Amino acid sequence: MENVVLVIHLVIALCLIGIVLLQRSEGGGLGMGGGGGDVMSSRGAATALGKLTWILAAGFIITSITLTVIARQKASSGSVINDTVLEEVVDAPVTPTLPDGDSLLPPSATDAPVAPPRAD
């Protein structure tokens, strides 16, 4: 179900991008008014593209909400971080260890570093 809605969502998104790019710029936001002689320059074509844009936008929003609802239903009630921390604690219990006897002894003379020869 989720895959079907996702595919429909992607097709609607691509169609919406294409329809928006086909429309004529009427606001002149970039200083381009869209000159005359365009195939889609009549008001009827602009209205049809506008209606199709609204329909695709509504479909995009509906599929977005549907995907959100499906994802929420599949989600567990806990956090992923909480689950990971609990699994690590259960799988690997911590046991204290005592240091061995050799590490408690003071260093001997043979453990001392060798000094480099002095140049006099």
Rank of each mutant, 00 (worst) to 15 (best):
L49E: 02
T53I: 02
G27L: 15
A109R: 15
G18P: 01
I62E: 00
L30A: 06
A57S: 15
D111Y: 07
L22M: 14
S42R: 06
S41M: 09
T95L: 05
L10R: 00
A92D: 14
A45M: 13
A46F: 09
P93L: 03
I8H: 05
L98C: 03
L10S: 03
D111R: 04
D83W: 03
D100K: 09
M1F: 06
I61S: 04
P116F: 05
K51Y: 08
D100A: 12
M1G: 07
A48M: 11
I70H: 02
P93M: 09
S76H: 14
G34E: 07
G29M: 09
A58K: 07
G28D: 05
A57E: 01
S76R: 10
A119Y: 07
V69I: 14
S76V: 04
L16V: 01
L30H: 12
L52A: 15
P117H: 02
V20Y: 04
P113R: 06
R72E: 10
I17K: 00
C15H: 02
G50D: 05
T97F: 05
G31M: 03
I19S: 01
G34T: 09
L104G: 03
L16E: 01
G29P: 03
P117C: 00
I12M: 00
G101T: 13
D120V: 10
A75F: 10
V69M: 11
S77L: 06
A75H: 08
A119E: 10
G31V: 02
V11N: 07
M32C: 05
L14A: 12
M40H: 11
G37E: 06
L98F: 08
P93A: 11
G34N: 11
G50S: 12
G44T: 11
T110G: 13
A45Q: 05
L98T: 13
G34P: 05
L105Y: 08
P107H: 09
Q23A: 02
G27P: 02
G28K: 01
E87H: 11
P116N: 06
R118G: 08
V85E: 13
N3W: 05
S25W: 05
I61G: 02
V80W: 09
S103N: 08
S41W: 02
E88C: 14
A92L: 07
T110D: 14
G59C: 09
A109T: 15
C15L: 15
L30Y: 07
S64F: 07
P113S: 05
L6M: 10
G37W: 06
I17H: 00
I70Y: 11
T63N: 01
T66H: 06
R24N: 08
P117R: 03
R72M: 13
T53S: 13
K51T: 11
V90R: 14
T53E: 06
P93E: 09
A112R: 11
A75D: 10
I62V: 15
K74I: 02
I55T: 14
V80D: 06
A58N: 06
T84F: 12
A119H: 12
I8E: 13
G28A: 04
G29D: 07
R72Y: 13
G33R: 10
E87P: 00
P99W: 04
E2Y: 11
M1C: 02
C15Q: 09
P106G: 01
S108N: 08
T84K: 11
R24F: 03
L98Q: 11
L10A: 01
L105T: 10
V80N: 04
P106M: 01
A57N: 04
A112G: 04
R118V: 14
L21S: 12
R118M: 11
I62P: 00
